[in-house]
Amino acid sequence: MSTAPTESPVTAFMLVKTTPEWLAMTVAERVRAFTTDVVPVIEARTRGVRSRFYDTEFYSARVTDIWVWEADDHDAYRLLIDALRETPFWDRYFEVVELLVGVENGYARTYDLPPAATLAT
């Protein structure tokens, strides 16, 4: 068994669909809404959380965007979700379609194995 720490970074793939309310806003209004209604709550209520954003509406009608959230541990992830649910992000600006949460190379940590990954050459 591995002697690695029990907590490991958590990655969440949050599949969302934009709502009519979000789409009715201009780009400037969207930026303002996100930076004033969502970001301050995340910053005030979380720690050890990072995000990346991917547009997918070009390829999918069901999911228009994917937010990739990386949290230092499960508690940081829980705080993030609690914070998001108290903002217009959750079910006003975006419908959360699916949450896929995992730990990178969890099996390798459990069995004390090297991760199976490919590298570009």
Rank of each mutant, 00 (worst) to 15 (best):
A4M: 13
P5A: 15
P9Q: 13
T11Y: 09
A12M: 14
A12I: 09
F13D: 08
M14S: 09
M14Q: 12
L15G: 01
L15Y: 04
V16E: 05
K17V: 06
P20W: 02
M25G: 03
T26L: 07
T26I: 10
V27K: 10
V27R: 07
A28D: 12
E29W: 03
E29K: 07
V31E: 15
V31I: 15
A33C: 06
F34L: 13
F34M: 15
V38A: 08
P40H: 04
I42G: 01
I42V: 15
A44H: 07
R45H: 13
R45I: 04
T46Y: 02
G48S: 05
R50K: 12
Y54I: 06
D55C: 08
D55H: 10
D55F: 11
T56F: 01
E57H: 11
F58H: 04
Y59S: 15
A61I: 03
R62W: 03
I66R: 03
W67H: 12
W69Y: 11
W69Q: 04
D72F: 03
D73W: 01
D73P: 02
A76W: 00
Y77G: 01
Y77T: 03
L79M: 08
I81Y: 03
D82K: 06
D82A: 13
A83E: 14
L84G: 05
L84Q: 07
R85K: 15
P88E: 07
F89R: 04
F89Y: 15
F89A: 15
R92F: 01
R92W: 02
Y93C: 00
F94E: 02
V96R: 01
E98Y: 05
L99R: 09
G102Y: 06
V103S: 03
V103D: 07
V103K: 10
E104W: 03
E104A: 10
N105R: 05
N105L: 02
N105D: 14
G106T: 04
T110K: 13
T110E: 14
T110F: 11
P115Y: 06
L119T: 09
L119H: 14
T121S: 10
T121F: 11
T121R: 08
